[in-house]
């Protein structure tokens, strides 16, 4: 089992690409499947966007902490912001007919669909996502 890799980024949306690209590079080195890497990049980009925009409200003095670890068959990534958290159990369904044309609110749905596990800490300011190395999860 590998040790945790940690990094911190300022709350600037342009930093999202750097983080997801460097994580994807590590996954490629560890022979994760193309589907798994696609899923992780997408979910990680959503987690980081939520942390920067909603958690830290793009305050450049606040940071987003990212930790990830590769195990034999999966990668675990946690993304933590300095915000107040949110009630992750009571998010409205973005696929409901009356919400379908709203321009936002799909990030958590995509994370849950593409990852094997998505969990939050009690406060709701840290999300942990887990994805298996090669078996593509059948999205709901």
């Amino acid at each position: 089992m590998d040790a945790w890799h940690s990094l911190k980024i300022p709350s600037i949306p342009e930093k999202i690409h750097d983080v997801e690209a460097s994580v994807a590079e590590v996954l490629e080195e560890h022979d994760f499947s193309g589907n798994a890497i696609f899923a992780v990049r997408l979910a990680l980009a959503e987690a980081l966007a939520n942390a920067i925009k909603h958690g830290n409200r793009q305050d450049p003095d606040k940071q987003v902490s990212v930790k990830f670890r590769i195990e034999n068959s999966s990668v675990t990534i946690s993304v933590r912001d300095e915000g107040e958290g949110f009630d992750y159990n009571n998010l409205p369904d973005p696929t409901a007919p009356d919400r379908l044309e709203l321009p936002s609110g799909r990030g958590v749905l995509l994370m849950r669909s593409y990852m094997d596990q998505v969990t939050y800490n009690d406060k709701g300011n840290e999300v942990t996502i887990v994805k298996g190395r090669g078996v593509e999860k059948c999205a709901q």
């Binding site: 696609f38 966007a49 936002s104």
Partner: peptide, 15 residues
């Protein structure tokens, strides 16, 4: 090859 939910939001607004 990759598209985020924010990009989807932009397409919805364009639509």
């Amino acid at each position: 090859e990759y598209l985020s939910s924010a990009a989807l939001g932009k397409l919805i607004t364009l639509n």
